[in-house]
């Protein structure tokens, strides 16, 4: 059976630090377990490609950054992903892209964990498809939040996910889609400014609201075998 592609926002995916394998064999599927319990062998993400860089030494290794309204996915395409590498290398950011790929978590020596995606298929899409992805991903996330009290014990212990925190992630993504993120009252801000302007709010807000991506260093050392 083919593994379905999970829908997870970057803010959640980038906090993943568990990888489990089903079975002992070399070919047993691996899963990245996210804080709300998504079992990701495969992921499907749509966002804005903001950067593509060849960071390889001898062979090419493309690192792409794909931003959704909550954070940035790191996508690595090397010699085992030749088609995706070719498509990525020919793209000119910023562009809306769809990426289907294998979920992976890299653990450098310092104990950090860096979730990433090894792409199987990459394609340019339009804003409408990006918006639909945000809606579907919001739905799937809400479904997981509804079952948060049924998380397996080891997942609960590792992450102690907060319902409110991930509800906020979903809200943030949906407001961004609607171009409302400027008017979101924050704790320090004045409560409401009341002057919604969805026409202009959107494009600027998108860039401004992206979070810092996780620190990545020494990625040249990655072993993709």
């Amino acid at each position: 059976m083919r593994e379905p592609a999970r829908r997870v926002f970057a803010a959640e995916y980038n906090r993943s630090e568990m990888k489990v394998k089903e079975g002992e064999s070399q070919y047993a599927p691996g899963y990245v377990i996210t804080p709300t319990g998504a079992r990701c062998n495969r992921l499907f993400v749509v966002g804005v490609l903001t950067e593509v860089e060849d960071i390889g030494r001898e062979d090419s290794l493309y690192r792409a950054r794909v931003s959704d309204p909550t954070g940035t996915f790191l996508v690595y395409a090397g010699r085992y992903q030749p088609e995706a590498a070719q498509v990525l290398s020919s793209m000119e950011p910023p562009e809306f892209v769809a990426v289907t790929g294998k979920a992976d978590v890299y653990q450098p020596d310092d104990g950090d964990t860096i979730p990433s995606i090894r792409p199987e298929a990459v394609s340019t899409v339009d804003r409408g498809e990006r918006d639909r992805w945000v809606v579907t991903t919001a739905r799937r996330t809400i479904e997981r939040l509804e079952k948060l009290d049924q998380l397996p014990e080891e997942v609960e212990e590792r992450y102690h996910p907060s319902l409110n925190e991930y509800r906020d992630v979903v809200r943030e993504a949906l407001r961004n889609l609607l171009g409302e993120e400027r008017h979101e009252p924050s704790v320090e801000d004045e409560p409401e400014d009341g002057e919604a302007d969805p026409e202009t709010g959107r494009a600027d807000g998108e860039q401004g609201r992206w979070r810092e991506e996780p620190p990545v260093e020494d990625v040249e050392e990655w072993d993709f075998s």
């Binding site: 918006d131 945000v134 739905r139 809400i142 407001r175 609607l178």
Partner: peptide, 17 residues
Amino acid sequence: EPESSPEDDARELLEAL
């Protein structure tokens, strides 16, 4: 193409939240 508009869907989800 799906008939529903992502904006309408997003508003509905936000309200429910």
